[in-house]
Design a binder for these strands. Structure first.
Lengths: 320, 320
DNA sequence: AACATTGATAACCTAACCCTATCAACAAAT
DNA sequence: ATTTGTTGATAGGGTTAGGTTATCAATGTT
């Protein structure tokens, strides 16, 4: 009647062995324990299940009908346990499971298509679950464990996170095709004075970046028309609502044939955003994350070397 | 790297709780153990799996990617264990599982159709796996555990078995329709002298029974034509190859309209076979088996009372 | 009749497991 | 800036689950 405590896995292994061999001593041999230990564990199992599993006699041991019924369920438990252990053995090699990666919506769609295929080539079993969120949300989700790693706009100050710089991405100045600056490859900063500049909603990092530049140049942020994505922002420029600063990777990815738009450089104006990979300082996989950061730098340099600049990588020495 | 020993169920329960609550102390509360004990068991689990499952920090606990991957497998093991325990709880009530019943081929098909429906009514979840074998084989299979119970021709002498008498079944004398005794309801023993009597192969219990009677009466066993079943035996009588003694239950079940045959009684000749239910003396379900024997007696009396006689039931007193 | 083999039992030992008490690190509120 | 409360980790100690060897009675085999 004592049914308070669960059977142990060991007891189930013992039962399975005896049920298979129908002999306590040889089962004990196989299990590399003594026969009395086996007897004791089987008895304990029977009393915890409240059922007689085996019929003992001096002339051989048999399964009871109940034991016959429960044996398959016992094997189910053992099989599930074996599956767990095998899966653990695979996963313990690392780089074989699903990591949760957060990216800002103004970067992910234009960066990841270039990086993910290379990562997949290098780490065959690695899977990345990608989640797009505003950078503040990314930071929060990284902290609360919803994300394992995130690509964030730099600088990030946080003691509890490790941040490894990835690369520096210029912003380009985009005007409508019928704009007075259209056709001018390199514009001077002063030419921007008084321009109406469109940008994204304030929650996006790019907003504050563009705002501070505009303040410096005397251009005006058009707050009545804020884009919710880079694509809508571009459409608004096409429609003649104003001009905009757009990230180079966006332009590279989405505007191979820019109709109705003209892309300029601003002279002597290093308007850029920096991206870094971040993870919790205590994350057990931190070594792999650092490796990942190196991989991403490598692939960006390889496939996007003419669009973005490699990050300064302090602490890693001159990696050029 | 230590992966020698399996995780314990308890460790998996602990892991599941922490993964669910993401807090050691409250998980420890729920599990009704102290927090240090929980810490220790989780560490042990991680080292036996060779994987970090949880990322501890003073500000909250998170699953690692590997822990996230392994958590469902952990739950699988726990679910399988719960299934086993539930199944055991059901089965421990008794009368709910499959018992293996052996019957002689000259009895089973003619007895069980009358008994099984009643048993099913009384024990809703009980299942009987029925196996037909010659009685010597039944005895052997009962001993080696292939069968749990068996209906056997009495007497059976075996210290290691319990035998409970069920009922006594007359044998009737059957002659072809054109036989000289056809139409004689009650024949005298001496009228059988010189008759050719057909019977089953020697492995069947009925063979020796019939043989000893024939020896006594001066009838001759026809060994060149031995039936392999009661049905073929009947056909042989119809064909005029001889006469036969057939069990009353067979006649009751299969010969409601006996064409080409005539069934006699032999005066003052108690030619009968006794049937008993047998099980191993040490069988944990022996009390239920004894109950079963009583049930079978009851149902036989109810449905076949005019064909067979109740057994003398020594040791149970006058159940009359 | 002698011998080997079955599972159960006795007596004992070790280590697994839990406890309480305490710690250092951090968060939040003052 | 300091205090207070909470986090998971660690230390020291006690109980018992689970192992051992030695032995038994019952049974099967030679």
């Amino acid at each position: 009647m004592a049914r308070q405590k669960s059977p142990t896995v060991r007891q189930l292994e013992y039962f399975e062995a005896v049920a298979r061999m129908l002999n306590y001593r040889s089962a004990a041999d196989e299990l590399e324990i003594s026969q009395p230990a086996l007897t004791a564990q089987i008895s304990a199992l029977e009393s915890s299940l409240g059922v007689a599993l085996l019929e003992r006699s001096r002339s051989g041991t048999h399964l009871t009908p109940e034991g016959r019924e429960l044996l398959p369920h016992t094997r189910d438990v053992l099989a599930a346990m074996r599956t767990l252990e095998e899966r653990a053995a695979v996963v313990s090699e690392g780089r074989q499971t699903t990591y949760r990666l957060g990216v800002p919506p103004t970067l992910g769609p234009y960066l990841l298509p270039h990086v993910m295929p290379e990562l997949h080539k290098r780490y065959h079993k690695l899977k990345l679950y990608v989640r797009e969120q505003p950078h503040q949300t990314l930071l929060q989700e990284l902290r609360n464990g919803s994300l394992d790693i995130a690509i964030l706009p730099l600088p990030v100050r946080a003691d509890d996170l490790i941040i490894e710089a990835l690369f520096t991405e210029p912003l380009r100045y985009v005007v409508p095709a019928d704009h007075s600056l259209s056709g001018t490859p390199v514009v001077r900063p002063r030419q921007l004075r008084g321009e109406r500049v469109l940008t994204l909603e304030a929650q996006h990092h790019i907003h504050s970046l563009v705002k501070s530049v505009c303040d410096k140049l005397g251009a005006s942020i058009e707050r009545d028309y804020e884009g919710t994505s880079l694509d809508t922002l571009r459409q608004m420029v096409v429609m003649g609502l104003g001009t905009a600063f757009l990230p180079a990777l966006y332009i590279h990815s989405e505007m191979h044939k820019p109709e109705a738009l003209y892309v300029c450089q601003v002279e002597g104006m290093p308007l850029v955003r920096d991206h870094g990979l971040a993870w919790r300082a205590g994350a057990p996989s931190r070594h792999f994350y650092r490796e990942l950061a190196g991989d991403i730098r490598e692939f960006v340099d390889l496939r996007l070397g003419d669009v973005v600049r490699p990050a300064n990588t302090p602490g890693r020495g001159g990696k050029r």
